[in-house]
Structures are given as C-alpha cells and as structure tokens.
C-alpha cells in the first residue's frame, strides 16, 4: 500500500480496489468457503465426502434436483415467451419510461404479499372461480397444481426478464432495422436476422436473472404449490431449520452454486470476450 501512494491517482485506484477486495473477501469469498467447509464435514466436524455421496446416491434428492431444474427451466421459458414481445412492444411506445415503471412496480411489493394475493385469486371461492361460476362453468381446482405454481413463479420473475431484454432492444440503432427494410427484408426476416441476434445479450442476461433464482424458490412451492412441487430450496430450508443438519444443507447449497455457475458459463456472451 505504501508504494501506491507515490502517485495519487494510482493510490486512489488501489484504495478502491483494496476496499472492494476486502468487501469481496468478507462477504463473498469467506461465506462461500465456509459453506464449502461446512459441507465437507460430518456431525462431529470430521472431514468427509459422505454428504456428497449421500446426495448423489439418494433417489429423492436427485429427483428434487431434477424437479428444481425442470421447473426453473419451465419458468424461464414462460417468462421469455411473454417478456420478449412485451419488451419489444415497450420500446415502440411513446412514454417508454412510464410503462417500464409499471412493469417494475410489482417488484417493489413484498414477495409474500404478492403470493398471498394469489391465494385470494385462485382459491375455491376466489375471484377466478367466482367468475367461472358466474358465467355458468364449474369451479376448478386451481391452487396446489403445477399450473398455479408456474403462473405465480413466472409472474414474480417476469420483470427480471423484461428489463434486460428491453435494455438490449433499446440499444439497437433504429437505422439498422430501417436498413434491413431498405434492403428488402420483410418484418419476419428483420426480426430473425437483425433484432433477435442483436438482443441476445439481453435475452441471456434475462435467462440468468430468472433461471438462477428459480432453482431455489421455496415459499411459493409451499403456499401455492402446497408442497406438491418440491425444489432444492425447500430441502435447504428444512435442513437449516428443522433437522439442524447444516452440513447437508450446505452440501445442497454448494451443488446449487455449481449448477448456477454452469448456467452462467452456458449463457455467457463469448463473442465480446465476456460482458461481465
């Protein structure tokens, strides 16, 4: 540190880096290491790989992992299907920022409150079923189904998909689409050959922002899914709170982190040498 103070500007930079480095060390690296160390211990704090062995030989945990990935995948696909046209439509509007604000607004509301609101909507006597009854149809079982779980999870995650796609679409120079039209491409070709490739960074960022948190959803699985949908998040909660087996909870945590790193790598933007 003493050396770096020779040149003031360099000094500032290294001071920033130092603070940032310390921050990273204290709040990112250390906790991750603790998690890893915890996951490599048995109940008597001896080193062991038994937790990992137990995880990968247990049918139920593998099934849960598969479930988590499958549902996270579905949630991502659903949000993408709705987010892309929405984001595109938003870029064409006059008061973009205002409409965007409306999209972001729900993220200001507590997740639990939003979930409880859906209980009121989807229940036997809820708004949806009373509407169905009113138009002469039979009320349906909506809560505690895969569909209701996917609906609520996708609703919660939707803004995180729209935002990056919207940003990527806004960055596209309108002259490019004009040029594409000029050169004889129809709307579909313009979308496919110009807009879609140029918005890829946003799509990838959106996939990361939705898929990764979806892997470890846990409150919605119980409140809306009625525990008919079980993901790894549920298991982690249980191991830390109920069985107090923090080692195994940490093991699942480490496995989830690895899954997230893989997702990041797969969706990384390679052409520009990594945007992050």
């Amino acid at each position: 540190m003493a050396l770096s103070f020779k040149k003031q500007k360099q000094g500032f930079t290294s001071a920033y880096m130092g603070i940032y480095g310390l921050w990273l060390l204290a709040f990112v690296v250390l906790p991750l290491l603790l998690l890893l160390v915890e996951s490599l211990q048995d109940q008597n704090h001896h080193f062991t790989l038994a937790n990992y062995q137990a995880f990968f030989t247990s049918g139920s945990y593998l099934a849960m992992t598969f479930n988590s990935i499958w549902y996270a995948f579905l949630i991502t696909v659903i949000t993408l299907v709705f987010a892309y046209p929405t984001a595109y439509f938003l870029t064409t509007l006059k008061n973009k920022q205002f409409w965007l604000l409306l999209v972001i607004l729900p993220t200001w509301i507590n997740l639990l409150l939003k979930t409880y609101a859906f209980i009121g909507l989807l229940g036997q006597g809820g708004l949806v079923n009373s509407t169905l009854t009113a138009v002469g149809l039979h009320p349906m079982q909506l809560l505690f189904t895969d569909w209701s779980f996917l609906l609520v999870a996708a609703y919660v995650e939707l803004p995180f998909m729209i935002l990056p796609i919207f940003n990527a679409l806004s960055d596209i120079d309108p002259l490019l689409t004009a040029a594409s039209r000029d050169l004889g491409a129809n709307s579909w070709q313009t979308l496919k050959k110009v807009i879609w490739p140029l918005s890829m960074p946003g799509v990838k960022a959106g996939i990361q922002a939705v898929f990764i948190p979806s892997l470890s959803l846990f409150m919605i699985t119980r409140l809306i899914g009625g525990n008919r949908v079980i993901t790894l998040g549920t298991a982690i909660e249980e191991h830390f709170l109920v069985t107090q087996n923090w080692a195994f909870g940490s093991t699942i945590g480490v496995i989830l982190i690895v899954a997230m790193v893989i997702t990041m790598l797969l969706t990384q933007d390679k052409q520009k040498g990594g945007r992050s």
Binding site: I119, G123, G125, G226, N227
Partner: peptide, 17 residues
Amino acid sequence: VKAIVADELKIYMAQGE
C-alpha cells in the same frame, strides 16, 4: 392429500379450500 402446508392451513380451511 390435497396439499401440505404450514400456518396458512387455517386460512385455506376457513376459505373452504
């Protein structure tokens, strides 16, 4: 089994779920 829930069981039962 329809659902496996926690505190919210009383809300669901009261709503006739």
